[in-house]
Amino acid sequence: MRMITVAGPPSSGKTSVILKLAQLLDGQVGVVKFDCLTSFDRERYDEAGIPVFVGYSGKFCPDHFFVNNIEGAVQWGIRRGFDTLITESAGLCNRCSPHIKGILSVCVVDALSGIHTPRKIGPMLKMADVAVITKGDIVSQAEREVFAWGVRQANSKAQILFVNGITGQGAFMLAKKAAQAREITTLTDNTLRFTTPAAACAYCTGETRIGEAYQMGMMRKLEYD
């Protein structure tokens, strides 16, 4: 199964981009949506006929919650026979990032969100392989260029793609990237690209490896079906 992590600020267009991407990918796509307290995305995935599992972090730190449940997501995806699993992380704070070494990492940013936003987003953009800029179709060319420059300041190594979340223009190049995403059977022993913030479990003390063996302290496990 190929895997892609998608993150980005609220309302930046993550779900729209994933839906457009899913249309262009061969094979079955499944989504795990990580959110904090609420999510309105289930309906949109249902409508598009894309299997989705929604997990709420609740009182737990969303970043820790992600690491504690990502391997479960992978195994859920494999059990469901997906060809591609996309995780959508919402509600992360700006010091968080759900990106894993060796896994295609996408950050979605909104061209309307202001020129300084790319520099405020932090590791979820800094550590991404691909920066997708949405809503570029409704601002001027100059503003697109200035915004892309802001993204390059935050992460000069990322591929920058403009995707129109409504018409899907640009998603085509993202699909090409996604088709090259690595096949995995587990994430155990893979490492995060960036440390998680401190809380009260093993990951607070700097642990970055994924897997049951490394999970200690207070954590929350999802019940995957």
Binding site: L112, I115, D137, I138, V139, S140, Q141, E143, V146
Partner: peptide
């Protein structure tokens, strides 16, 4: 490619 269309506006 630079693009110009009817839908584009300045937002800054």
């Amino acid at each position: 490619v630079a693009q110009l269309s009817q839908n584009m506006n300045f937002v800054m």
